[in-house]
């Protein structure tokens, strides 16, 4: 964190590589716009750099970065809404849409997915996101059906182990 505070490119890049995708995921979920989500990513790391002298380097930076990112996303949402509706602060600006609910879970799942080995991640992406059957995934990825199944089971067990609290919180 000392290197990050000094603006050391490698330290900034390390933190970015670890956390930019979870930041992007919660920004995209909450705002629904890629351009705005990338603006949130950029501003989150700039704000984190500004505040880094107040961060305890012994702590996990994930919750700290999450809090900064969510705040930036809220600010961007309110700015866009003000401009869209042509009005200044009003009491109902305090109310956030449902897309801002459960963002910590989004962060956790995205971080866990990104932590999977590449070969397991591509099987999970193919079968859960693109809804391919194991056979279709095997054909597309060019690997044996048994390998798809074993990678899928292994990856799912790994994710379920990290994320066995999902659906029990409203974060």
């Amino acid at each position: 964190m000392d290197r990050f505070r000094r603006g050391d490119h490698e330290a900034v890049r390390e933190l970015y590589d670890l956390y930019s995708r979870p930041v992007f995921a919660i920004a995209l979920r909450s705002l629904g716009d890629r351009v705005l989500a990338e603006e949130v990513v950029q501003q989150t790391f700039v704000n984190a750099w500004r505040a880094s002298s107040r961060f305890d380097p012994d702590l996990d930076p994930a919750p700290w970065l999450y809090a900064i990112a969510r705040r930036v996303a809220v600010d961007v949402y309110r700015r866009e809404r003000r401009h869209r509706e042509g009005r200044r602060e009003e009491t109902d600006m305090a109310v956030l849409p449902p897309s801002f609910e459960g963002l910590w879970e989004v962060w956790e799942v995205r971080a866990a997915v990104d932590g999977l080995p590449k070969d397991e991640r591509e099987v999970i992406e193919a079968t859960f996101y693109r809804q391919l059957t194991h056979s279709e995934a095997a054909a597309e990825l060019g690997i044996p059906l048994g390998t798809v199944k074993s990678r899928s089971h292994r990856a799912f067990r790994r994710l379920a182990g990290f994320l066995d609290h999902l659906g029990t919180e409203t974060a």
């Binding site: 995708r21 992007f24 995921a25 890629r34 989500a37 990338e38 989004v106 995205r110 859960f128 996101y129």
Partner: peptide
């Protein structure tokens, strides 16, 4: 969550 595009979109 795994079926949600935000888990797979890249900046």
């Amino acid at each position: 969550y795994l079926a949600d595009p935000v888990m797979w979109e890249e900046p």
